[in-house]
Write a protein that binds this DNA or RNA. Sequence first.
DNA 1: AAGTTCAGCTTACATGTGTACGCTATTTTA
DNA 2: TAAAATAGCGTACACATGTAAGCTGAACTT
Lengths: 203, 203
Amino acid sequence: MNRQEQKLRTRRSIIEAAFSLLDEQRSLSSISLREVARAAGIAPTSFYRHFKDIDELGLTLVDEAGLALRQLMRQARVRIASGGGVINTSVDTFMEFINANNNVFRLLLREHTGTSMAFRAAVLREIKHFNVELTDYTISTTGLPYNIANLQAEAMVKLVFSAGAEALDASDEQKANVAERVKLQLRFVVNGALQAKAEQTSS
Amino acid sequence: MNRQEQKLRTRRSIIEAAFSLLDEQRSLSSISLREVARAAGIAPTSFYRHFKDIDELGLTLVDEAGLALRQLMRQARVRIASGGGVINTSVDTFMEFINANNNVFRLLLREHTGTSMAFRAAVLREIKHFNVELTDYTISTTGLPYNIANLQAEAMVKLVFSAGAEALDASDEQKANVAERVKLQLRFVVNGALQAKAEQTSS
DNA sequence: AAGTTCAGCTTACATGTGTACGCTATTTTA
DNA sequence: TAAAATAGCGTACACATGTAAGCTGAACTT
């Protein structure tokens, strides 16, 4: 077996091990190097062959989580194109993601308000992607002026993420309920923004 | 000096010490008993004379933070009564609170998505207070039906808390900007909810 | 074939942790 | 005033942590 290949494989298993440790009771700052090494099946000191720090691993995890989220976005856009309503499709896609990638979303949520400035910044970067994309989309489909579209997009992302947070701890029925509610709330925002545009242009 | 009184005083200094440790890099789960004891100026083992656990201290802190938040709410209501606009006054009051009680709000924000189920539940209870109060207020002032008022209130609380999170890390100018933006977003929500009512009653 | 590289290992150490145990000094009770 | 209660302390122990140092064997290079 190739040496480079083997190294990558081990690196992968470290990352997977770390994700598996990030259940509802652990955050990045609370998992120890030794613990990760143990779960990955390597000696503690071998960890350093792959990451300088445990923080470097953390940043890698945030990046991976962000990547997964961006893939989700793309998927949502495809589904929207084939009809079904923007809000409905987006929220449903998002909720499916949370269900399927529990720990991935939990990581983002937790580190968003976590203790590491670097992690917070990394998560914010990912959220900003969402905002930019949604702003652009809104402008191109509704013709809202930039400032209003941007405010609307930001509010929507915040509401969806908050709903996602609720859904993480919730039962299946509760999850459905959360999804329903956030859809209605998103409609409030959309309609409010439209109204704001009407007022702005008529003045 | 009274013995009971002295005990309370020490208990206070433990709590204060803990709050002082909860800066932007520390969460409840990352502060150690010994650290708190050190900061409070007592021996590690003396801690147990006041709290069974470090978790028990944590719950106390969340409760205290919640109390501070409820006092804030009352203050906002007073200021609203003397004019100035509900949204404006509420957001301004909230932002002042965050500025003045940095670590207190940070605690709530962090533990809201933290690693301890008990802490999360405790924070949720505090947020629910906000929702209930705001829902009642909305019904009594606008006559919105319960379901709509409730959705609106929930969305508003979420947006304000999210804005608070942003403000925590922000400079003064940025803070002002965040406040401006969230006010506009709240207006979106309010107007959207009003519109939803119009549609619901006309059907 | 000989030499070099390097992923992963074992061993080791200093440091921080939670908490059990028992003592002391002071307040409180009787 | 004598006895009981108790806030706070010092000592002690078992444990987990990060990481330094050096070794080994297999994969690569020449």
